[in-house]
Design a protein around this nucleic acid. Structure first.
Lengths: 115, 115
DNA sequence: CAAATATATGAAGAGGTATTCATATATTGA
DNA sequence: TCAATATATGAATACCTCTTCATATATTTG
């Protein structure tokens, strides 16, 4: 308990901050975020992701590698297809939260791009 | 709420995805994340942030500008000092969530490295 | 085996970004 | 006013990352 519980302490170790930043960084690219959102609810094959999002197979594969390495997505092979999905419920929860928050933020954010 | 409630819909518009990714991107740099964490609970002056985190005043100021522009932090002037803090409760909530999640993730970090 | 399909990977270029250094702009007080 | 303090900003640069193109590696089927 020297490191604080789950109440209000925000004192993270250097390594944890690096981890957290790395996760944010991975979600911080629009293309990667679209990929994560696309297969966070149901698993999708690489080809399906590429087709759905209208991205090249190569680009999708490159991004999937990073997302796998960052433990955001996990891969599962079925025959010649590889299906990708959220790494765990924790990730699913985080994503759902963010989506919800962004929706809320948007509802009372008047300024910005609209015109 | 125009489309989709706060239930399970994850269908974001292109603009919303851009916004969300931009927010993640801003939090995705370790230095910036440290700055945000430092002043997300209580407001801090630029000098205090620099001293606390052992960063140059210039670097802190550059990052603060980005965080302000991204509506993650807000600035408030008092005399010759400028205090920075979380832009709103929404931001505070998001950060608290992520911190909590990263802590949990860390506790059972041994997922499958399977390929 | 070879062919067809699905995915992964290496190299390379274009563009972006974090950091530093120097300097500019407030703000207060004598 | 000038000096001192606090913050902001511009330019330069070294580094990193996204994307594309070409090619390699699996996997199933004939």
């Amino acid at each position: 308990m020297a490191r604080g519980g789950k109440s209000k302490s925000k004192n993270l170790q250097t390594g944890e901050i690096q981890n957290l930043a790395e996760m944010f960084r991975l979600l911080g690219d629009p293309t990667r975020l679209r990929i994560v959102l696309a297969c966070s609810t149901r698993d999708l094959s690489v080809g399906d992701i590429a087709e759905t999002l209208e991205l090249s197979q190569s680009l999708v594969s490159h991004h999937l590698r990073l997302l796998r390495a960052g433990r955001i997505l996990r891969a599962e092979r079925h025959g010649r297809h590889v299906f990708y999905g959220a790494a765990d419920d924790h990730i699913r929860h985080v994503i759902a939260d963010m989506v919800e928050h962004v929706a809320e933020a948007h509802s009372h954010t008047r300024a910005k791009t609209a015109a």
